[in-house]
């Protein structure tokens, strides 16, 4: 009797341990599986150039996803990052092509624009007390519409003509385009360098500093954080501003890469960003928004898209496959993770 009892307990503990390990590693197993699969089918997949290509392709998504991560950590929800990036793209193009601004002024203006959008979200959610999801949905439309107005709904490119017959005199400056196209030591693309500066800083900010702890405390229980002396409103406002700035930085890199103010380039940024941030919940089975997980999530999305492209998968099937992998990865982690903790 006793032997079977302790046997049952041991067995259960063994299962719990295994479940835990599985939950923590699930996303990495999926990622490793994809890499192995793609490199078997297409050996060029593992070339250094292609690996950087993957990283470069995910930088914009990753920056937006990091913004989303910050807003999720503080208990908010920022649906407006995709539109903010698109607005940033148009502002960067307009400032240079129409006003003839140089690169430093343009970058500052665009980052300020992102901060203003974030501040607007903060006013809506904190002062007007509109639920985050609804407020940022409103901003999504507002900002998404706003970016079309100055150029009357057209893409902005050097030499474009206006309704009154005048022609834009400005152009994208070399140093601005370097941000998107340049390479450090002729190897590492500039966007990847920028991401490798931003992401670790943000990780330190959220995981190792007092402010980061307050962010998670406000997201975990706003009332408790308030009673522990946290400035909850200011923290939430700053999180939205940070999210807006990161999104506008994403927009800058996008503008520098494509070299024109394309009104359609904002496309799937929001969905990809959320996919990365949500996959990030599952990394190490943390089940909370976290910077490292978000990066892994962004890389997973990038690997998937790059691999499918190399294998000549039809473009119209890519969204479906992306969705399937996202759902599968989440189901795997949460299902296993739950077994381990209950």
């Amino acid at each position: 009797m006793i032997a079977t009892a302790s046997g049952a307990a041991l067995q259960r503990r063994f299962r719990e341990r295994c479940g835990q390990a599985w939950g923590e590693a699930a996303i990495f197993i999926v990622l490793a599986g994809l890499v192995v699969l793609f490199s078997l089918l297409q050996p060029a997949f593992l070339h250094v150039a292609n690996l950087f290509q993957i990283l470069q392709s995910v930088t914009v998504t990753a920056l937006l996803a990091l913004g989303i991560t910050v807003s999720l950590a503080v208990g908010g929800f920022d649906l407006s990052v995709g539109s903010t990036a698109a607005l940033a793209l148009m502002v960067a193009s307009y400032a240079q092509v129409v006003w003839g601004w140089g690169a430093p002024a343009t970058v500052l203006l665009v980052l300020a624009t992102g901060a203003v959008v974030g501040g607007f979200n903060a006013v809506l959610t904190i002062v007007c007390r509109i639920p985050d999801l609804l407020a940022t949905l409103g901003t999504l439309f507002l900002v998404g519409g706003l970016q079309l107005i100055p150029s009357a709904g057209r893409s902005i490119a050097p030499g474009m003509s206006f309704d009154d017959g005048s022609v834009a005199q400005g152009f994208f400056s070399r140093s601005f385009l370097e941000l998107g196209r340049g390479r450090l030591w002729h190897v590492v693309p500039m966007p990847v360098v920028i991401l490798l500066v931003i992401a670790p800083s943000l990780w330190v900010l959220l995981e190792l500093t007092r402010w980061g702890r307050v962010v998670y405390a406000v997201g975990g229980n706003e009332r408790a954080a308030h009673l522990a002396g946290a400035a909850t409103r200011r923290t939430r406002a700053l999180a939205y501003v940070l999210s807006g700035v990161l999104a506008s930085l994403g927009g800058i890199l996008l503008a520098a890469r494509v070299g024109r103010g394309d009104i359609t380039s904002g496309g799937s940024l929001l969905q990809d960003g959320f996919a990365a941030a949500l996959i990030g919940y599952a990394v190490f089975n943390l089940r909370r928004p976290n910077v490292l997980g978000t990066l892994v999530g962004a890389v997973l999305v990038g690997v998937l898209l790059n691999g499918l492209t190399m294998l000549n998968a039809p473009y119209y099937a890519q969204d479906f496959i992306k969705g399937a992998v996202l759902v599968g990865a989440l189901a795997l982690t949460y299902r296993i993770g739950r077994d381990a903790t209950s």
Partner: peptide, 23 residues
Amino acid sequence: RTSFSAPGTLGADIAGTIGLPHL
């Protein structure tokens, strides 16, 4: 409702809970 953060979030362990107001 008034003292603890949501389970599983960063800083929801004993040390983090004790330390939060004194940070």
